[in-house]
Design a protein around this nucleic acid. Structure first.
Lengths: 205, 205
DNA sequence: TCAGCGCTGTGATTTCTGTCACATTGTGAA
DNA sequence: TTCACAATGTGACAGAAATCACAGCGCTGA
């Protein structure tokens, strides 16, 4: 895939280096890309699709933190990579996805030599950190109805559509809630003319 | 203050640079060091005491995220500093505290020239990111009783003591809960012989 | 066509947490 | 000592959310 346009800020030399050393890889919708406790050997750049980054607990509960789209990188894979540590998160393809995997051995060198890479890493840290902060805000200060609204808007936002093709169960899983609660809240939102409900689909109005 | 021993990994040259350019500053217990929305002009290293990093919402609710002790640095001030952005968090002195403030203008240079500084920054990112992940875990998956237990153990851990000199109200604030709830849960823990309760003090057993 | 299964709607009940009201106790200052 | 105030204890109640039970509904494949 021709990915250079996704990273216009990278110097030609850097692009060369990546091209020579990185591996492209595809994942189908639903495939797990990275698992809690797994060793990290590469830094992951997303070229196409969407990756869902979430936390899993012992009882099988899940909790969505954020998505990564084209042009974004996994901050955890960068931080861990530098220190060859294990990941503390789960990453799963939300759509069919293409990624670029850059071996960790290159990281130090790239950080030192290429200003644009250094900037990119810093930006990535900053972005994910901010997203985690807003996640904390949501669960610390908001009730499920507001969290659901936030969830739907973000989901719609990332694809640019006004429709959300998910079952209530899938939404409940992402929010670590239960299907009934989500169904009821959605009904309330429908009565307030905020959404229209269909089978496997929700339309924002 | 003689702070060099807190950062034994720093090269002599780096220490020189910091010594020439950084400003030492003291804060008394309870003083706010950094406020949400405030511009960041320096990277903050903690020399002595404890700083509490927390989030605040519009209704006056607070939510503790983590503490910074001697030898640690504020990840947010590093990330923001590099891009001259505003802080999204509150920082308050939990005890009388000494910090070292390094002007942001030096950051780029230090990152490039001093390997030990680069390592330190990466380590700081990693550490705070992990702590945020465990914060997310706690509020997403755990009930107040477990969160309280975690809170008490962490609080005791950071000072090395088995006693916690806080009122129930202060604990409730940190957990964005209410005093009555904390009192009741503590009573339950006392019945289970997990703690002993005194006025303004809790002892772990 | 219809049988089956997954999705959605809804009531009843329980648990957890927050809120209000008020009693009790400990401590320090006058 | 005594008063005032902060800290703690506790009951009653309210609301959010989880759980259980079950009823329809819609799509899909035989």
């Amino acid at each position: 895939m021709n990915w250079k346009q996704l990273f216009p800020q990278f110097e030609p030399e850097l692009i060369d280096l990546i091209e020579k050393n990185a591996v492209e890889r595809s994942f189908r919708t639903g495939e797990v890309i990275m698992r809690t406790g797994q060793y990290i050997k590469s830094t992951v750049l997303v070229l196409e699709g969407q990756i869902k980054i979430y936390r899993e607990n012992a009882d099988g509960g899940e909790f969505l933190m954020y998505y990564l789209g084209p042009g974004q990188a996994c901050a955890v894979s960068m931080i861990c990579a530098i220190q060859s540590q294990t990941s503390e998160i789960m990453a799963q393809a939300e759509e069919d996805t293409e990624v670029l995997m850059i071996p960790i051995q290159l990281m130090d060198d790239m950080m030192n030599k290429y200003k644009s890479w250094y900037q990119f890493v810093i930006q990535t840290y900053r972005g994910r950190f901010d997203e985690l902060l807003s996640v904390v805000d949501n669960i610390a200060f908001r009730n499920m109805d507001e969290r659901l609204e936030f969830y739907l808007k973000r989901y719609a936002g990332k694809s640019g559509k006004k429709t959300i093709e998910l079952s209530h169960q899938q939404i409940a899983d992402d929010l670590n809630s239960s299907r009934e609660v989500i169904s009821r809240l959605l009904k309330k939102m429908e009565q307030q003319k905020l959404v229209k409900l269909y089978r496997n689909m929700i339309e924002l109005v």
